[in-house]
Simulated scan of single mutants.
Amino acid sequence: MSFIYGGVDTETLPGVDAGVVEWPSLYGLEVDEIDSVGIFARIVGGVSRSRTQFVFEVEISGATIEEALERADVFAELVDPARGVRDLDPHGSGEWVWPDAILSGEIIWEGHGRFVKGRAIFEAAPFGKPAVDESWQRSGAGSLTFTRSMGNTSALPTVEIRGTLSAAQTVTVTVGSYTNTIRGPLTSAQVMRLDFENFEFAVWAGTTKVASLVPRMSELDPLELWTKTAYTLSVASTGTVSQVLVKANSRKQ
């Protein structure tokens, strides 16, 4: 067994066998509730998660106990929190990574014969991200239907719109029950990007942010996509739309 941390697979470390033995769902979940007067019930005000945790069993072998301890030193250097947060692939599969992972406590090695073993506990961002995510696109205005299949919780997608709009023209994006109308201008060299994951709405020219879209949008509520739910994306415009791209930003908890 192995895990990948900061791009380094523990399987490549001599004598190291490291596998995840505890991994949570909904770790760090906090539910905010308030009393509902008169009906003897409580109302859920919201839920939040700040971090998640993974526990790894690490066993290191050597020709002698001294060599095993030397290899433990190499492992400790890899996971040293002084090096900052890094991506963690807890299963070593290359499919999902948890960002901002860091060792959250000491490792206590226990030795016998030519082996040492201990537990390494990491805390990371609450949601894993896929190495390769889902996306859907169409050319021009119109509609398309899509269904998310990756992850196990809601996703906050990114919607990108390319085309040509004057300052007086608009584009209207509808996904399920969500509708947003956005005013131009937009040139053929630019893209309108509605990034609901990072709550950033702007016009971009390559890697340069040209203008904020917030004053031009009819709606600032978030757009959420759930797995195994069919959504219809509809795009209408008083200008010209050449391409619409939806990136899922899938998440696993």
Score class of each variant (00 low, 15 high):
A101F: 01
S50L: 13
E67N: 07
G38T: 05
I60C: 01
E106P: 12
R42N: 12
L29N: 06
G46P: 07
E33N: 12
P14M: 04
E106D: 13
P81Q: 07
I60T: 01
S36P: 07
I65G: 07
I65T: 12
V55P: 02
E30F: 09
P99G: 06
V21T: 14
S25Y: 13
L13G: 01
P99W: 04
I65P: 05
S25W: 13
W98M: 01
D80S: 11
R86L: 07
A76T: 15
E70H: 10
P14Y: 05
I39M: 11
R86I: 03
A41G: 09
W96F: 03
V79W: 01
R49T: 09
A82I: 10
G15W: 01
F54G: 00
E57C: 08
V16D: 01
L29V: 08
H112T: 14
E106Y: 08
V58Y: 00
R71L: 07
D32L: 11
S50G: 10
E30L: 11
G62N: 04
Q53Y: 14
L29Q: 08
G92Q: 03
H91N: 12
D80I: 07
R42F: 09
R86T: 04
P99C: 03
G94P: 00
I102G: 05
V79M: 02
V31F: 07
G28C: 05
F56C: 03
L88N: 00
Y27T: 08
S93E: 14
E22I: 13
V97Y: 03
E67F: 03
E70M: 13
V97P: 00
I65C: 10
L29K: 08
G105A: 12
P99H: 05
D87T: 06
F56W: 03
G94W: 03
Y27D: 15
A101G: 05
F54Y: 06
T12R: 05
I60R: 00
G62T: 03
G28W: 04
G19W: 13
I43Q: 13
V21Q: 08
S36M: 11
G46H: 09
S61V: 11
I34F: 12
R71Y: 07
G19H: 13
E95Q: 08
V85T: 15
L26D: 13
A82Q: 10
R71H: 08
F75W: 03
F56N: 00
E22V: 14
F40K: 12
V31Q: 07
D73Y: 15
S50W: 10
P14V: 04
W96R: 00
E67Y: 05
G45W: 07
R49H: 09
W109H: 03
R42E: 13
L103F: 05
V21M: 08
L26Y: 14
G19K: 14
A68Y: 02
E66F: 11
V21I: 15
